[in-house]
Amino acid sequence: MPKDSNVSVLVGEGVVTVKREGSNRAVLAKVLGKVEADGVEVLCLDRLVHESHEQQFGEWTLAGAVTTLLSRSLSPITGATA
């Protein structure tokens, strides 16, 4: 089983940057769409930014075969009821 790499995901205005520890390269992908539903945020990227064995980048869950879908739980909003 491959060792999980330390990967940082930076979400900017319409773009996502993925940087792997130990690499000088960063992968930049455009955000094609963003959906928030049932306390989950999903970003659809314009390219694949993860390897087939990778399932998680920190708080982000990874999916997709042609483009990467990043999903994460949204932080609870102050004053919201469960």
Results as ranks from 00 to 15, higher is better:
57 F>I: 01
53 H>F: 12
71 S>R: 15
5 S>F: 11
1 M>W: 11
67 T>E: 11
26 A>F: 09
46 D>W: 14
31 V>I: 15
72 R>D: 11
11 V>Y: 10
30 K>S: 04
73 S>E: 09
62 L>N: 00
42 V>Q: 12
11 V>T: 01
7 V>Q: 00
29 A>G: 06
75 S>W: 13
1 M>I: 14
27 V>L: 15
12 G>H: 04
35 V>E: 10
47 R>K: 15
3 K>L: 15
82 A>K: 08
47 R>G: 02
76 P>T: 09
59 E>G: 03
1 M>P: 09
80 A>M: 04
30 K>V: 04
1 M>E: 03
10 L>I: 02
12 G>A: 00
55 Q>A: 08
39 G>Q: 07
72 R>N: 12
34 K>V: 12
36 E>G: 04
47 R>Y: 02
16 V>A: 01
36 E>K: 13
26 A>Y: 04
17 T>E: 06
48 L>K: 13
38 D>S: 14
31 V>G: 00
81 T>V: 11
22 G>D: 07
20 R>K: 06
45 L>G: 06
35 V>N: 15
9 V>Q: 03
42 V>A: 14
31 V>M: 06
10 L>Y: 05
62 L>H: 02
50 H>T: 02
59 E>R: 02
72 R>K: 15
41 E>L: 14
59 E>H: 06
72 R>P: 09
61 T>R: 13
66 V>E: 13
23 S>H: 11
45 L>V: 10
40 V>I: 11
2 P>K: 05
39 G>N: 10
70 L>P: 10
27 V>A: 07
2 P>I: 07
70 L>S: 09
28 L>R: 14
42 V>S: 13
55 Q>M: 05
22 G>A: 03
